[in-house]
């Protein structure tokens, strides 16, 4: 299968390893991957801040860039939700509505793609560690990611998954919310860190690097012994 990668801006700039891991896993499974190098951002920061016109200006380019793609696989639950659910809303009633819908239908989040579309759960990964899983809200509620990442983790050799309490509650990142209301965002993050710490896991794993960025940043500042890792990185370990 020819797969077009979708690498969100902050993963490109801050967490390239996450993107690289996804590309490696897909290639290891025998797929041909390509990447539109001009891709930058899906427009979510503007959309979430109320700047829908600006978001549309960015999103239009994205639609054009992936127009000929057969299948688009992305490595972020949140940006994935943007390209599926929220593009439909963003382009509702505009000439590009049909195209946004067609685009949404081609988009997959990485774990969902592996498990639901390819029917693969064992990617041959090995990672001897205790991990706990944080359900990123957009992945969970907009894309229905719940069983898929867990099915993949279950097949990673040596890995033990310990569920944390309230795994489904928000970590407090929320995009621009994190900087507009840092006090609330931080409090939510603390609650999340506490749940994770109680499991004694070595790593918090998630499908969303943005949640992990927030959790890690908070844990580092508060000197909490927490490490985070994206699911793609876990799956790339051998």
């Amino acid at each position: 299968m020819k797969i077009s990668l979708f690498i969100p801006c902050f993963i490109d700039a801050c967490y390239p390893q996450v993107g690289i891991s996804m590309a490696q896993v897909l290639e290891r499974l025998g797929h041909q991957v390509e990447y539109p190098e001009d891709f930058t951002c899906c427009g979510q920061p503007a959309f979430n801040s109320g700047y829908w016109d600006e978001a549309r200006a960015v999103a239009e380019k994205v639609l054009a860039m992936y127009r000929s793609a057969e299948i688009i696989v992305g490595v972020s639950g949140s940006c994935g939700a943007m390209m599926t659910t929220f593009y439909k809303e963003l382009f509702h009633g505009t000439p590009l509505e049909a195209e946004a819908n067609a685009h949404a239908a081609k988009c997959w989040e990485f774990s969902d793609f592996l498990v639901t579309k390819l029917g693969v759960t064992d990617v041959g990964a090995k990672f001897p560690a205790k991990v706990t899983f944080h359900d990123g809200c957009h992945g969970l509620r907009e894309l229905g990611l719940k069983k898929q990442p867990r099915a993949l983790l279950a097949k990673v050799k040596g890995l033990e998954l310990i569920e944390m309490g309230a795994a489904e509650s928000c970590c407090g990142f929320g995009g621009t919310f994190a900087v507009k209301f840092p006090m609330i965002s931080t409090a939510m993050g603390e609650v999340k860190c506490d749940s994770a710490l109680k499991t004694n896991a070595d790593y918090i794993v998630s499908c969303d690097a943005s949640c992990l960025m927030h959790i890690q940043g908070l844990a580092d500042r508060q000197k909490k012994p927490l490490r985070t890792m994206h699911l793609a990185e876990v799956l790339a370990k051998q």
């Binding site: 659910t85 509620r141 907009e142 894309l143 229905g144 719940k146």
Partner: peptide, 10 residues
């Protein structure tokens, strides 16, 4: 709009 159109998959 009719209800439920924006509901998530679950």
């Amino acid at each position: 709009p009719k209800p439920g159109l924006l509901s998530g998959p679950g």
